Amino acid sequence: MAPQALSQAQRLADRSPSITGPEIVAELVPPPQFEHASFESYRPDLNFPSQLEAVERLNTFAGAWLPQRPGGFFSRTRKPKAELPGIYLDGGFGVGKTHLLAALWHAAPGPKYFGTFIEYTALVGALGYAATVKQLSGARLICIDEFELDDPGDTMLMTRLLGELVASGTRVAATSNTPPNSLGEGRFAAIDFLREIQAMSANFEIVRIDGLDYRRRDVEGHAIAVPRDELDQMVPALLERGSAVTRDDFGSLIRHLSTVHPSKYIKMIHGIDVIALTDVYLLTDQTDALRLVAFIDRVYDAEIPIIANGQPLNEVFDQEMLSGGYRKKYQRSQSRLVALTTGELPPHD
């Protein structure tokens, strides 16, 4: 039974999806785990007052959409004066920036969009610049999670796009990704961001969010690596239950990711319940590692558990990477890999 069942497992390496502009637009909503995110459901760490201050500041930012209440000139019910059209959440990973960004999105009237930096640049690639401006024009709010500073060309493309949209009345909210060497643990990410967007800088208010990664206990733990014979038994058992399972050699997946644009990773994992990876090993090429980080971000958003054998997945980034310019990205991915391999596998409906 086992060999036959194993043959039914799909391979991520066989998936080379295409993605259209309308499909990207349809995905510009918060990830499933933030479907009901609100300011009330955010749990600030009281040891870091900036977290509660960020909630209050975003509530004020969202207040600009509230209808003006009747009242005289000196009435306290008057709508507050117009504020800057952009707000930028600057902080380390795991402090709840995405939760707060999604909460703001839920509080805003439509039309509105929520996506990662990669998704917006992919939209420009799919539709062209002018068509993207037309598609997004009229939006009340555009949320950009993890504004990338890795690629100056893409950064300037996005700032030009945002400049046009802000000029037309759209409001923008973004989070940072603490770029090369994190330049002071994220604090100077905001400065780099403002430098990149040049004339746009006057449109953004910076909101600093200090704190520790809420997954820090997971970071101190380890991703589960199961013995190969155990993985060989788990895959057919999951298939027998009706779960959609992919099974890939880790090296094959890494090579395949280099052939698929990161904007398409979400379609690679569409309809998958569990991902199985065999013979996981230490990565020494930073380009491969960054692709894996982008892929794991999509897997984490989709809440797809991973079973793997070989090197524990949170240990696939070598020490040079973990001490280099993108260490914050790798640390975030490590915590996500621990969560994905230690969580209970979802039961089949």
Rank of each mutant, 00 (worst) to 15 (best):
G72F: 09
R336D: 03
T278H: 07
K112Y: 00
S201W: 03
E53G: 12
V166R: 09
G125P: 03
G92R: 13
P346R: 06
G310P: 05
K79I: 09
G125D: 09
T20D: 12
A174F: 09
F48A: 09
L58F: 03
P347F: 03
Q4D: 15
V55Y: 08
L322H: 06
R187A: 14
C143D: 09
A54I: 00
A289L: 06
A308E: 14
L28M: 14
I307K: 09
A103H: 01
R140G: 04
L123E: 00
M158E: 08
R195S: 15
R195W: 01
P67Q: 10
L6D: 04
L337Q: 02
P180S: 14
P227H: 04
Y281W: 04
G211K: 04
M234Q: 12
R78D: 07
C143F: 02
G128A: 00
D192W: 02
A9N: 06
E148C: 01
G110S: 13
E220L: 05
L322Q: 09
M321P: 00
D229Q: 08
Y300C: 05
E196A: 14
H256M: 13
Y265C: 12
E56C: 10
P32D: 04
R208I: 08
V226D: 04
A13W: 01
Q331T: 15
T98D: 10
R140W: 02
G271C: 10
V235K: 06
L183D: 12
E164Q: 05
F147Q: 06
E148V: 11
